[in-house]
């Protein structure tokens, strides 16, 4: 098991109330361990509820196994916790749909998200899974900005999307793998249609 440097950013001790100085230990699905401040955890509704329900003491945190986050790898989780530490103590936006969403990407977030698109999508997925509202907002904003003024072909490259032809081919392959006979029947049907037959039977 490897241990990432923790906390992921310097902690401003004076800014944190005494009772919030506890650091929790989390483990990614590839066994990377992270220490995260209680205040930073509050940015994630999912993790905040989890630690509240666990009711760990400072001793528990040290003595019990790290809390496993099985769906997220270490590389992604590191970015998530870096973000949470940087934004700890900030108000969590409430989106009730009453006002249009206006999202600005701060400099720190822009640098944090200067990553390849595959990792960016993993970060978005993690932000959604851990319910980190503002991280989700800025990462979605970043993805949206990538679309500006592009053609469909350019967007396919940016968003790692298959073309309609590739999509069809993948579906056919999946169908064939599942039921080779079904594909044979379909081809036979298409051939008969080409020959002008009205009925398959």
């Amino acid at each position: 098991m490897s241990v990432e440097n923790a906390p992921v950013v310097d902690v401003d001790e004076a800014a944190i109330p005494v009772e919030k100085k506890m650091y929790y230990r989390f483990e990614s699905n590839d066994k990377k361990e992270f220490r995260v401040s209680e205040l930073a955890i509050q940015q994630s509704e999912t993790l905040n509820r989890l630690v509240e329900a666990m009711g760990y003491t400072s001793e528990d945190v040290e003595n019990k196994p790290a809390i496993a986050i099985e769906n997220i790898d270490g590389k992604t989780l590191k970015l998530v916790f870096q973000w949470c530490e940087h934004h700890k103590g900030e108000a969590i936006p409430v989106d009730d749909g009453s006002v249009p969403k206006i999202v600005e990407i701060p400099e720190f977030d822009a640098k944090l998200m200067d990553i390849d698109n595959g990792l960016l999508f993993k970060l978005i997925w993690a932000a959604d899974y851990l319910n980190i509202v503002q991280l989700l907002n800025v990462s979605c904003k970043k993805v949206a900005n990538m679309a500006q003024g592009k053609t469909p072909a350019q967007l396919r490259r940016v968003y790692l999307l298959p073309s309609d032809e590739e999509d069809e081919a993948a579906k056919r392959a999946a169908q064939e793998a599942q039921d080779p006979r079904a594909r044979e029947v379909e081809e036979e049907f298409e051939e008969r249609k080409r020959q002008g037959g009205n009925s398959f039977f």
Binding site: G118, F121, K122, W125, D128, L136, C140, V143, L160, L161
Partner: peptide, 11 residues
């Protein structure tokens, strides 16, 4: 590697 179509509805 996830792509845009793997994103949940809310995302």
């Amino acid at each position: 590697m996830p792509s845009l179509i793997d994103m949940p509805e809310v995302v």
